[in-house]
Computed example of a mutant assay.
Amino acid sequence: MRHIERLPEPAILKEKHDEWQEKFDKAKKKNSKARPDSSKYGNPKIRKNLEDSSYGKCFYCESKLSGASKEIDHFIEVTINPKMAYTWANLYLSCSNCNDKADHNAIPVDTALDPCRDSDDEIQANITFDDEYICSQCNSLKGLNTIKKYHLGAELLDMKRGKWLQKIMKDIISIQNQMRIDGRCLPTIDERQRIKRYMQPDQPYSLMSKIYLEKNFDYLLR
């Protein structure tokens, strides 16, 4: 998870919000289990703004998304506040794993991290990584709640993060081999930038990469 600066509300949502919300309110009166129309809040222009906000990554786990894996999550569940069904600030891009989150009654959103509210410093103060395995920072309750709510410790995510670390290590080994051939103790500027690239927020699992690199290969970053 990294902090996300949300882009401005799409014009289509500004224009249609009241109309869509009114239709949903009427549907709720007839059927308490009615759901908002996903074709509306999933409008391509809305989806595009969400993708651009997060560099095409899940807001929660930082997995790169493509095709059918792109889902739009209501951060505050519609069952909790149906008036936020089409609210821009309540729509988050999510993978299917994180969208299948623990509900509000189990773990309220205000007891977990929010990538659109919390800074990178706040996020890293509550969650960290041991290689590909996510864990709470200093037994932080907010960190534990975040991991549990969005299933950030799922085996599938461990596998994806592990493969990403393998990619990083392949690059590091290549740089280290070249340093040995050249008789250098430090990387070149270009080599340093290659490694630092993995830490940038547009990359998958950038927080994990940052923690891993700073912990194990600090000399390549200086």
Rank of each mutant, 00 (worst) to 15 (best):
N216W: 12
C185W: 10
L165A: 09
D118I: 03
A154N: 14
I12A: 06
K45N: 13
V109A: 05
H151R: 15
I211K: 13
M169N: 15
S94K: 00
D114L: 04
Q176L: 15
D218P: 00
P115A: 02
C138L: 15
K26N: 08
K215Y: 10
N105P: 00
C116W: 04
K30Q: 12
L152T: 03
C61I: 03
L220T: 00
K163N: 14
I173H: 12
A85V: 08
E214R: 15
I46C: 11
D52G: 05
V78H: 09
L156T: 14
G153M: 02
Q166S: 11
R180E: 13
P204W: 10
K215V: 02
C58A: 02
K210E: 06
N139D: 13
T188I: 05
I4A: 05
L141S: 12
N43C: 03
W20M: 00
T146A: 01
I72S: 05
A89W: 02
S32T: 10
L13R: 09
P44A: 01
L93D: 09
Y198T: 00
Y55P: 01
N90D: 04
K215D: 09
D158I: 12
S69K: 09
W88T: 00
I168D: 08
K160V: 02
K48W: 01
K142N: 03
S94H: 07
D73I: 00
T146Q: 01
P36Y: 01
S66Y: 09
N31F: 14
K70I: 09
A27N: 06
K210Y: 10
A11F: 11
A27K: 14
L165R: 14
R161I: 11
L7G: 05
S119I: 04
G143I: 07
S206D: 04
F217Y: 15
Y205G: 02
E15D: 11
E122T: 13
K14L: 08
D100Q: 15
S119H: 06
S140I: 04
Y41N: 01
A112F: 06
P201M: 01
A85W: 08
S136Q: 10
K29P: 07
G162E: 14
I80V: 15
D37E: 11
K30G: 14
L13K: 07
F129L: 13
L13G: 01
L50H: 06
M208W: 05
C58F: 07
D110F: 12
Y219L: 09
M169G: 04
K45C: 04
Q203S: 08
P36A: 04
V109M: 04
K83L: 10
L144K: 15
L113P: 13
S119N: 07
I107R: 08
R2A: 11
K33V: 02
W164L: 12
N216V: 10
A102L: 11
E191I: 06
Y198R: 02
I189P: 03
N99R: 02
K57A: 07
N139K: 14
R117I: 15
P115T: 11
K28W: 05
Q178S: 14
D121P: 01
R180W: 04
K26R: 11
Y60G: 08
K101G: 06
D120C: 11
S63N: 12
